[in-house]
Nucleic acid binder design. Sequence first.
RNA 1: CGCGGGGUAGAGCAGUGGCAGCUCGUCGGGCUCAUAACCCGGAGGUCCCAGGUUCGAGUCCUGGCCCCGCUACCA
Length: 616
Amino acid sequence: MPENILIAIAWPYANAEIHVGNITGSHLPGDIVARYHRLKGNNVLMVSGTDSHGTPVTLAADKEGKAVEGVYKEYHYGFLDLFQELGISYDLFTTTHTENHFKVAQSMFLALKKNGFLFTQKSMQWYSPNAKKFLPDRYVEGTCYICGYEGARSDQCDNCGNVLEPEKLLEPRSKTGGALELRETEHFYLDLSKLEPDVKNFLKERAAHMRDTVLGESLGKIEAEGLKPRPITRDLDWGIPVPVAGWDGKCLYVWFEAVIGYLSAAIEWAALSGGSSSEAYRDPQSKRQKEAWREWWVNPAARQFYFIGKDNIFFHTSLWPAQLMGAGSAFMAIFASEEVPLSLPYDVPANQFMNLEGQKISGSRNWAIWGRDALTRYDPDALRYYLTVNMPENRDSDWDWAEFVARNNNELVATWGNLANRVLAFCDKNWDGYVPDFGTGGAEPPPLRPSDLSLLAVIEAGFQSVGRELDAVHLRAALQEAMRLASEVNKYLDTCAPWFEIKTDKDAAALTIYTALKAIDSLKVMFASFLPFTSERLHGFFGYESPLFGEQYTETVKDSLGEHKVLRYREVGRTVSPTYWKPSELQPGKKLNQPGPLFKKLEDTIVEEERARLGK
RNA sequence: CGCGGGGUAGAGCAGUGGCAGCUCGUCGGGCUCAUAACCCGGAGGUCCCAGGUUCGAGUCCUGGCCCCGCUACCA
């Protein structure tokens, strides 16, 4: 019975390119788990998009003298390129600037309002007459009225750590220049204190399978400090309008609105999949497919996994569930359909941060490895491999160029790539490009020896052991286990030594090569979610017609806000993918294709070249 | 100040009260199918410190030291 798995990945903000820290933190782990579940034959929906709204984008646009929409789209298109090149296989990567997302977010707001979880309150905020807008707290600096520190932000002092009241800040100044004045403004607040018991219960129910780091940052924090009301609107002109009469010029706060994207993207995906073009978006005939999002959102059996960085834990474990529980079944009013509650997150396997050569990644100092730039010099699977074995699952990790080269050469190339290459090349040379058939033309099963059966048992147990780690989202451990199994095949080859066997007993060599090929064919599946490009190539060397995975493509969608480009994923030449997560059934006598090396060995000289690029 | 995570071989990590393990590196040996790749063996530990519970503590308890993070638009 296939499971429904929602893979929800943090929405990148449209004011910076994506670097290796972002990739290893959320996009890559999400992709690995999504691909694993696809291989198992589960129904996967993997969504995210560009977080396009908020003041930082408008300020960037002002500075560059560009239209706001152009600025967000520039980053958005860069994200689409990166995910295609790196094989981050989103079923839908969209943006928050869509008619659909506006409607869904506003409906969530109205449902919370209807259920009595919103209230309004007036407060003083810093206003820039120059820019004609209220500034976010972090864009206003001044002297702390508690400790006298001169570089305090208006909402918080980094020196004494106190939370500040913006209007009390001394000598306030705008980070973007120009005068400042205090103005009164009114906002909607989400009354989280009312939802606190529900959020606590939600977290307690999931305590057993959530990471300690994640629980500590959420349940531990709520028990210590409680949940306090938070504003959910801002004085902005670039964003989603507050759907209440008389609230012109105010938009939904980005933190409130962007997380709703996980839901709205599923709804957009279902609408788009009703047909292959944007017309389907409005086609009532495609109603059945349009309802498909419910399989992941109003289905108690569905499991939702959220892949995020540690800075986002509280939003996803506490605030987002509070929004979902608070909106409850009232949200469904948007569809004029029966009222059922929305599903809640199953797990939030948040990662810590990745540093770079011992220092914190910093875009402004260019102390970063940008995804698209790295892909101009290195293969996607080499990057994916290092980013997985070095994933900051339990604590911060460090990207070290010397280690990147060493692990690529000693593990990826030497252990796994060389294993596949040595066996396929040996087979190609001595059996003329066919799997050995033991003289029966493949009609009878091969007469395997106890040592052959024993190796295959060890390798095939990997579908359980690697699978167990993947199910628990222990990706480093899962990949290490697969690598350990590859090493077992290398040991087996050394013991059997087919290069000797073939001189005296070609049948024995045939058994060894058949066994090794079958083991590699199984290992290929275990590696596939981590290394999709090379696994697909290896799959091709084995002569299979149907690919392991589908393909990624982009599409332009038109709506009342204009048009937006999205990244999608589809099966090719089939509607349902076969279940690949099972031992190889390699047939003797099968025609193989011409093999070649899967990975490239890297020169040591790149270490200094790459280090020289940093900080410039 | 508060809260959270961490400290185990040169590096990175696992470890469920019962002989301290894994990957890489390093040293020595073997092999030649393979991208000089592969295989075997060795060396390398005050498990942050102090105290406690226990027949027995890396693991549980108490106190301390150090590193990282969160505190609400810095992934």
